[in-house]
Every structure is written in C-alpha cells, then in structure tokens.
Amino acid sequence: MKTNPIVGQGTPLHRWQTSSHLAHLPVIDILTLVPAGARAVIIAPHPDDEVLGCGGFLQVLAEAGRALQLISVTDGSASHPGSKRWPVERLSTVRPQESAEALRRLGLPLHSLQWRRGGFADSQVAARESELSAFIERHLRPSDVLFTTWREDGHCDHEAVGRASAEAAKRVGATLHELPVWTWHWATPEDSRVPWHRARKILLAPALVARKRHALQAFASQLEGDPHVGLPPVLAPYVLERLLQPFEVVFL
C-alpha cells in the first residue's frame, strides 16, 4: 500500500504562483476539448470534487450550452471518521445537498443536468473498481468527453475512480481527461511524478473564479472539522486557495 501523501499543509501557494514552469504550461480552450455536439461527463469520487477540479470550466461549458452529465461515485460519508457532529448518516444526506447547492451557485442548469449517483462506499472504491467501471460504462456514449480525477492524485478513491473511468472510456471509445485535485497539495511545480507533458491550462476569468469560490462555500461539512476527535477541516483555507487560481489544469 502506498504511503498517504496528503499530510500537513502541503506545498505553499506561493510556490505555485511563482513557478515559471506552471506559468508556461500550454493553454487550451475548454470548448475545443468539448466540441459542439459532444457531452461533458464529470466523474467525481466525492461530492465537491466536481467543483474543486473543474468548477471554473464547468461554468463555461454550461453557458455554451454543452450537454452535461455528473456521476457522483460516493456520497462522501467517510470524511469525518469518529465524529458525533458529522456522523456517517448525516453526511450521506448533507454532502449531496451541498453539491446541489454548489452547482446552483455555479449557474449550472440543474433541470437539464443528468446526475447519476453510484452509491459506492466512501474510501473503499478500489475494492469495487471493476463494478464501478461497468457502472460508468453504462452511462457513456462514444462521443462523450470525460473529466475525472487523476489516477495518481494521492487519494485512494480519486485514483480508483480515475482508473475505472479510464477503463470505461476505453471500452466505449470515449475521450478521457484527468484532473489534479490533491496533487496541488503534495506535489511541487517541477515534480517529476506529475505528467506535466500532458498538462494544459484552461484560463478562468475573475468572475468564474469568484463563482467557484462562492460555490465551494456551500460545502459546509468540509469547511468544518471536529476538534473533539482531532479532525481539521478537509477544505482548510490553504487547500482552497491552491484550487482557486485563475486557471484549471487537465492532463490530456
């Protein structure tokens, strides 16, 4: 089993902001990645990953009228282990509601958004990876463009979802792109473990970043830890700031 790299406060924001390597990543237009007539399928391991990873360019896709499908793999109920304030039963209800509110704040058309919920157990996705791949495959078309978490992102669920999505896309003939989420925590700008040669930047106007920031505030459970059991917030301020830069990155 790999060592968990998501520890401490991670790589300081200023290292990313001052990185010439990151500054010179090639830029790509999200509407080029998802051309007219294609559907964007966002596959999120937990409620909030769809906003953390691509809450900026989701707004652009929605405004352009691209068809959207969100697949929420788990309900995120394992985010506060041992907490009486945030027990599993409460989280399993609250976290999907938080996602719905966040998507509303982004301006996504909830009336037409196809939203599938997988019901897989949070933090245990890898144990049912082949089943997840089959579930995803059932909801795909060959013309789809998938966005999901990178297969080496550092969180066990993110990695399992990335692998399962890649397998499903391959079987259907759909296109897959991967998103770094926790990578910004443990990696560094010149980290050779990150496939920078596959990385492209999608630039975000200030209004898109502002709406993404507002949407992330909907995840109240993740913004609050539980000091009674020694749990810090999952989305601490230093985590959010790394994910609120004026661009989002995809690995092609």
Rank of each mutant, 00 (worst) to 15 (best):
Q114R: 06
L31Q: 04
R39D: 00
G55Y: 12
R90A: 10
L235F: 12
R104T: 15
F219E: 03
L25V: 11
A121P: 02
F147M: 08
L52H: 05
T149R: 03
E50H: 09
R116C: 11
A36I: 09
L231N: 03
V234D: 05
L68Q: 04
K84C: 13
P233E: 05
L58K: 02
A127S: 13
D144M: 07
P206R: 01
R128S: 09
V7R: 12
G10M: 07
Q9G: 13
Q59N: 12
A164E: 00
F147A: 08
A169D: 01
H14D: 14
P109F: 05
L243A: 12
L33T: 09
G56I: 11
L68R: 10
P227S: 08
D49H: 11
N4D: 15
N4Y: 13
V7A: 14
W115F: 10
A127L: 15
P195M: 02
G10S: 05
A127Q: 15
P195S: 06
G119P: 07
F57P: 00
V7F: 11
E152D: 15
L216A: 08
S20T: 13
R95F: 08
S165T: 04
G10V: 12
W150P: 00
T74P: 10
T188I: 06
L103I: 05
Y238P: 03
V181D: 00
W86T: 03
Q124E: 14
I71Q: 00
E248C: 07
R200A: 11
A215E: 04
S123M: 15
E101I: 12
S77L: 02
H228N: 14
L13D: 10
F247Y: 15
E101Y: 10
R105K: 14
E50M: 10
